[in-house]
Design a protein around this nucleic acid. Structure first.
Lengths: 134, 134
DNA sequence: TATTGTTATACTCTATAACTATA
DNA sequence: TATAGTTATAGAGTATAACAATA
């Protein structure tokens, strides 16, 4: 089953490249994931963020704590359901998002654009299939 | 660049499935990675294992320590270069490898076989290209 | 009772760099 | 001096489960 090996290798190579870039902005991959998820939204509950990022709730509390410490996000309880916590980017967080996110995409594109468009389309389709299987 | 998103999602889904299975055998993903790497070999040095698994040397010492504690691997210094440490599966480690590894592959195949052979071949080729880019 | 988050525990991995022994 | 591993440090993510507040 060499495809399994290739999947792991390809992703490892990709994420080493991606994570190293993210770390230059003093963000861990998980922190970047949350910032990227919150970007261009009005904020999301902890539960929503957990669903999107696949970070479990116990861990997510810690990740958000550290982002709050860095003044990149803020918490607010919902008025209509006081069990829920709304997490939003602060102005600083939003500014970071607006600079880091496009820079990061550009950094990744540098590599992905070395594949031709047809291959990228195929790859995307196959990865979608793969995800649906799991 | 939706292909980036799909790559991350597909891999997350895959590794959640894979890691959960591995954990049933009381192994962390990193520990399984080392066991799988050492399987069917005469043993490897720490440096070799690090290269194969992409675990950095500081971390690898800890991972191997825990495998030694579990009596799954053993260390031995090389005679001709006493700086090098040879790591080998113990009989227990080998037995674990021989049961867990095929079981794990079978577990993964269950899902991968839901794609047809042509798609798997294509995917494999594209992933190889992707890895080479990084 | 069920849901949303937080807290607690114990472990594991990560990055980085200093250090030891050997070459 | 260079190399192979270990050790040290500080921080972060993981699984799991108990817990508080709210519904």
């Amino acid at each position: 089953m060499p495809v399994i090996r290739e999947l792991a290798r390809a992703y490892q190579a990709f994420s080493a490249y991606s994570d190293a870039h993210v770390r230059q902005f003093d963000l861990t991959p998980a922190q970047f994931d949350v910032i990227a998820t919150l970007g261009n939204t009005q904020g999301m509950t902890m539960g929503d963020i957990g669903e999107k990022t696949l970070i479990t709730k116990g861990t997510l509390t810690g990740v958000v704590d550290r982002l709050v410490q860095k003044r990149l996000v803020q918490r607010a309880t919902l008025v209509d359901n006081r069990r829920c916590v709304m997490v939003q980017l602060t102005p600083e967080g939003n500014q970071l998002f607006e600079t880091v996110f496009p820079a990061h995409i550009a950094h990744l594109k540098e590599r992905f654009n070395q594949l031709d468009a047809t291959d990228l389309d195929q790859l995307q389709g196959l990865l979608t299939q793969l995800r649906q299987i799991f």
